[in-house]
Design a protein around this nucleic acid. Structure first.
Lengths: 154, 154
DNA sequence: CCGCGCTCTCTCGCTGAGCGAGATTATCGC
DNA sequence: GCGATAATCTCGCTCAGCGAGAGAGCGCGG
């Protein structure tokens, strides 16, 4: 990646961040395999759980967009999650073209099982942080997030 | 994910981190598609570039382990990267069972094209950081990384 | 109130990523 | 040298995800 430009202390942080994302991906795949799923299914579950927590409506289309899947792939993901009993398809009464995805209790448990330990570890460290330090982390992560999103060439 | 325990300021940072990893995954897939590859190939390239920068030997086996693939899948990844001219297979003279993977110039360019913008964005923010803030970020990321790695139940 | 375009989801057929099993080739201790 | 072990590759298979298009429901204009 040749990001040796910048100060060494800076580059190390960038590498740490990448290491985190890589590790996260591996853990997802491993957890998925342990639970008879695929990485995409775990991502879908997390996406659905996030939406549930934020009280956002979770439709099939939205999920597919979030995962970068086309409609056929999205249907397949939902089929798999439904077969495992993690979500249920519910026709939207307002707009009956839509499928609302209801997250079942087992899925919440799975989500906690997957995300719980790392979240606790991070919260542990954050507890010792002062406001300035938390803000530093926040600015760093925000920059990282913004650094990805722009579509340069497309 | 029901991580509403912990202080709200803390939870937000956890969600930010997850958002970063999710976005990173999507960008990988998108970039891969733009360059006639798959997400796994991009991950492999990044892994190889990291190894090259650290002057670590990059063998087929190591790569597969890093990506969580079995030997057959690893061979397939290398086949694809080789076909695209991004890596070359080189027999290790010391141990001729081993295949060393030489990263070709085009791959370095690809790597920079993918990682450059986000890295620059992050470095930009880090430049304005003092040592204490950088250390806060470092501790946060280290905790996140450590939080993933342990194998609880297996 | 009916038709028409648009949106959302699903079905079908297909490509190819990744797996398991086992073959192949090379190293090493004896 | 020879058997045990290690690294990689080959083969056959399963199934994730894609493209194309069908079907059902919405809502607007006439």
């Amino acid at each position: 990646m040749n990001d040796d430009d910048g100060e060494p202390g800076h580059a190390k942080l960038v590498h740490l961040l990448r290491a985190v994302t890589v590790e996260y991906g591996l853990r997802q795949a491993e957890f998925a395999a342990r639970n008879g799923m695929h990485a995409t299914d775990v991502r879908a579950l997390i996406s659905l759980l996030d939406a549930a927590r934020a009280d956002e409506p979770a439709t099939a289309g939205r999920l597919g967009a979030r995962l970068g899947l086309n409609s056929a792939g999205t249907t397949a993901v939902i089929d798999r999650l439904e077969r495992l009993g993690h979500v249920a398809r519910v026709r939207d009464a307002r707009d009956r073209r839509r499928i609302l995805l209801r997250v079942e209790p087992g899925a919440f448990r799975l989500g906690r099982e997957f995300s719980g330990p790392p979240i606790d570890a991070v919260l542990d460290v954050l507890d010792a942080f002062g406001p300035a330090e938390r803000d530093a982390v926040r600015r760093f992560l925000t920059a990282a997030l913004a650094g990805f999103s722009p579509k340069p060439g497309a």
